[in-house]
Design a protein around this nucleic acid. Sequence first.
DNA 1: AAAGATTGACCAGTCAATCTTT
DNA 2: AAAGATTGACTGGTCAATCTTT
Lengths: 175, 175
Amino acid sequence: MATPRWLDETESRAWRGHLRMSWLLNAAIERDLLRQAGLSHADYYVLASLSEVEGGRLRMSELADGILWSKSRLSHQVARMEARDLVRREGCAGDARGTFCVLTPAGRRAIEEAAPDHVESVRRHLLDVLTPEQVEALAGITTTVVERLGGGAHPVASCPVDPPANRKSTRPAPA
Amino acid sequence: MATPRWLDETESRAWRGHLRMSWLLNAAIERDLLRQAGLSHADYYVLASLSEVEGGRLRMSELADGILWSKSRLSHQVARMEARDLVRREGCAGDARGTFCVLTPAGRRAIEEAAPDHVESVRRHLLDVLTPEQVEALAGITTTVVERLGGGAHPVASCPVDPPANRKSTRPAPA
DNA sequence: AAAGATTGACCAGTCAATCTTT
DNA sequence: AAAGATTGACTGGTCAATCTTT
């Protein structure tokens, strides 16, 4: 086995920095979300995904693929959310194996109320701290890495972290 | 409440990209580490931190601060690792409240064997996929964000993800 | 047998309570 | 009372097994 190519100083800052940043960023945003909206990040992912599609309904597997979760994890999560009346499960006509996960009115309300603060939180902790060039660089970096890691198979319902519905809303495209 | 400033396309790519990248990267590296060395990422953090300090020993609180964990989490983790003979706990002369976490010979061996593959893994999934400019940009971005998030209070024992000891080793500075 | 989904047992992490030493 | 650390109960996630429909 050849002698390993250890990380140089910049590489080390990039890797360790990434680890710390992920950890701290996640903690900060989770904290904000919980305090302001009573939602976990996981809740938000699910609600946001549903809010972005026509009818607020998605097959369990589509939803799971979209947010890169295992079916099992999603089942557990949805069970809990169902108990809180944020989503509801419905059988799937045509393919009796399938199950739809559907946004309830309360779920819709929850995500729409949560979104503005959440976006603000993401800005405060990440985007507004960086220069526009850095934001662009981050977009490029993550796109490249994600493609390589096979997350390139893009999510059915786009990603989970957006503001609410892009559809019926009168809001400017929130992307 | 003012109308929220939704994310534009680049911002959205940066934020969602970060989320996906973190998730996928963590999964890939954890998988490699487990397969190649039988260690979890958490194990690696602890072992790496210890391997980087004189004597392979650190107070529990210092160790916890270094890797941004709660004392509670570290206690549980160390208890499990102690059972596997990777670390050992020792009382602290002088301050009887304190506890040292000490690398065992087996623990030292484990981290030293794991490190080369781990570094290779980090390169394969992240660093080698990026241009040198991107690596530098990532270092800059993460440094900025981490400082803002207060993780700026730098770790006592540096960060957790390095190759083994920088000290007695004959290796070129790996950090 | 494969796809869609759920379940239960188990493991890891969090939170609040506790204990000891300073 | 504060600092250092541990413990136990609870929550969330993983893995393997299961069940139904295709």
